[in-house]
Computed example of a mutant assay.
Amino acid sequence: MQQARRILIVDDDPDITKLLEVYLLDEGYDVEVAFTEQEMWACLSGKNFDLILLDILLPDGDGFDITRRLREVSDTAIILISRKNTDIDQIVGLELGADDYVPKPLEPRALLARIKSVLRRYKKVTVEVPHEPTETDTSTLKIDGWQLDTTTYRLTHHNGTQHVLSANEANLLAHLVRNEGRVLTRNDLMVAISGREWEYMDRSIDIMIVKLRRNIETDPGNPCLIQTVRGAGYIFKASQKDNNSVLGAVTDD
């Protein structure tokens, strides 16, 4: 018999947490509740969870900042929940690495459908206990003088310049590089980094492209590496000087 998927609800509203806890338990999930960020980290330090339902506004923490830090140490699925329902909040949440963003008030059946959709993207029944990235994580991609560590999301230039990308930014860049010379639509890119379909008017991919260009392009206003294909999407083109190495994934045992 397959082990029940484990969900951590992080919300300081006892009415919401009780409603969700009872509903999800009835649906066969193993559920725990944390009312603060501190309680959340305590739960994560001792157990594995398949998904975290994370409120944006906690008494001792900001959900966006928590999402960013979670993505630095864990691949646990994250669904953000919030009374703030603006496009920019959703874009920021997804860009920081959340898998979905659901506005309050919550409708349990609709939320359940979103939970099932997110969990289908994760093949493992349980995820690893969050751990700090180490210097021994050496799986890298070479990108025109830069190296992207796909484990720690560090982007390092041969001159020593370094940027730490969000999980989605790093995955987006890696997907572009691995498909060098191929035009990728926004839907291709969204599915690759989040497992969900791109929606009309969703600008999160475009915003991440702008940020990546600022990091790796000599002239971000006139990009050579990440080019726009009008009416289609984006294409990565390696510079001639780095064409032989840009696609090489280097993995040190």
Rank of each mutant, 00 (worst) to 15 (best):
R203E: 12
I66G: 10
I56M: 14
A4M: 06
D242S: 14
D144I: 02
P223T: 04
K116Q: 14
Y29K: 10
A42D: 15
W41H: 03
R114I: 10
Y153F: 10
G231H: 09
D15T: 11
P220C: 11
M201V: 12
T126F: 15
N48Q: 15
R71Q: 13
R154V: 02
N179M: 05
R120I: 05
E128S: 04
G248Y: 14
I193L: 05
P105F: 12
D188P: 03
R214W: 06
T17G: 11
N159T: 13
P14V: 11
T67L: 02
I226G: 04
L189Q: 04
N215C: 15
A167V: 01
Y153S: 04
K104Q: 05
P133G: 08
P105W: 06
M190D: 07
G233D: 04
T126P: 01
N85L: 06
V10F: 03
V125L: 12
D11Y: 12
I56G: 01
S194W: 02
M190L: 10
L225Y: 00
I7M: 03
I78S: 08
T152L: 01
T17A: 15
K241Y: 06
T140I: 14
E37N: 11
Y29R: 08
R196A: 07
I216K: 02
P108M: 02
N222E: 11
F49M: 05
R68H: 05
T150Y: 02
L80R: 01
K47E: 13
S139N: 08
D65M: 09
L184G: 07
I205F: 11
V177W: 01
I88F: 13
Y101F: 14
E197Q: 14
T185M: 07
S82H: 08
R68F: 14
D100L: 02
G28P: 09
P133Q: 02
L148Y: 07
H131I: 01
E21F: 08
Y153H: 02
R83G: 15
K241R: 12
V127H: 08
L20N: 04
F35P: 02
E128R: 06
D99A: 09
N243Y: 09
I7C: 01
D253M: 11
Q38V: 06
L155A: 00
